[in-house]
């Protein structure tokens, strides 16, 4: 169950307490996130919405260990990541986080197979084991036949599927999706959301997703609204969609 009041149990997969992030620009402090609390359980599918500059991506970066907060803590599966060294945080990301970005961010000179294999290069798996994992991940996203294609030979939707395969291939603790359908047409966006939903429903993945699109947000179990750096009451995605 997702909570934003800071009263979640210690059993939550992700616990965020009093999280704050302040940037200093032009001599002025900009408080992007303020005293933010969040509890997410395993298998939850959470969508974050909010206007540009509200701190959605910053929150995602903090949850994924890509950035460090100004104050507060983030604890994932018992690991308090906010005070980890950069090196430990990198290793932690490899083990626990799968990233899916708006622009897919595939390496253009690598094939779909090689792109998906990247996270596994950091493990001790043998070549044969890596191949098996990659083939499975590509099969899950429906691109088993396109593993030798380069990103330029794939459509936007297919590229994002490869990116999803890359995110799930090492079986991370949770997935962070930053506008995963932001660069796709409606049909492709629906297909990608179908896939992400399936990862949650069939494979029990925990997904935290930032989106501007209320239709996309409706796929999530719950939508949290970020305004001026503050997580406001969770409301039913349907009602938010209706507002827009």
């Amino acid at each position: 169950m997702v909570r934003v009041d800071g009263n979640g149990t210690s059993q939550s997969l992700i616990q965020v307490r009093n999280l704050g992030k302040t940037y200093r620009r032009g001599g002025e402090d900009i408080h992007v996130l303020q005293e933010l609390n969040l509890d997410v359980d395993k298998g939850d599918f959470v969508a974050f919405m909010g206007p540009s500059g509200s701190g959605k991506t910053t929150l995602l970066n903090l949850l994924g260990g890509l950035d460090v907060p100004t104050r507060g803590t983030v604890t994932v599966a018992g690991d308090e990541i906010t005070h980890m060294s950069a090196g430990k945080l990198t290793a932690w990301r490899a083990r626990h986080v799968g990233f899916i970005f708006q622009m897919y961010n595939l390496i253009p000179v690598l094939t779909a197979f090689q792109n998906v294999e990247l996270p596994l290069l950091l493990t001790s798996l043998s070549k044969a084991e890596r191949r098996k994992h990659v083939e499975t991940a590509l099969a899950v996203v429906g691109l088993g036949e396109r593993m030798n294609h380069y990103p330029r030979q794939l459509s936007g939707g297919q590229e994002q599927r490869v990116a999803i395969a890359r995110a799930i291939v090492a079986d991370p603790t949770f997935l962070l999706c930053d506008e995963p359908t932001g660069d796709l047409d409606r049909k492709s966006a629906d297909e990608i959301m179908e896939l992400i939903t399936r990862l949650v429903r069939e494979y029990g993945k925990t997904v935290l997703m930032v989106t501007h699109d209320p239709v996309v947000a409706r796929r999530a179990d719950i939508t949290l609204h970020l305004e001026k750096g503050v997580l406001v009451e969770a409301r039913e995605p349907h009602s938010i969609a209706a507002e827009v």
């Binding site: 994924g64 890509l66 950069a86 090196g87 990198t90 290793a91 990301r93 490899a94 083990r95 990233f99 970005f101 961010n105 390496i107 253009p108 990247l118 996270p119 950091l122 890359r166």
Partner: peptide
């Protein structure tokens, strides 16, 4: 630089 950032994001160290 973006690709190198992705590598770092997914767990490749400095």
């Amino acid at each position: 630089i973006n690709e190198l950032a992705i590598l770092k994001a997914i767990g490749f160290n400095d």
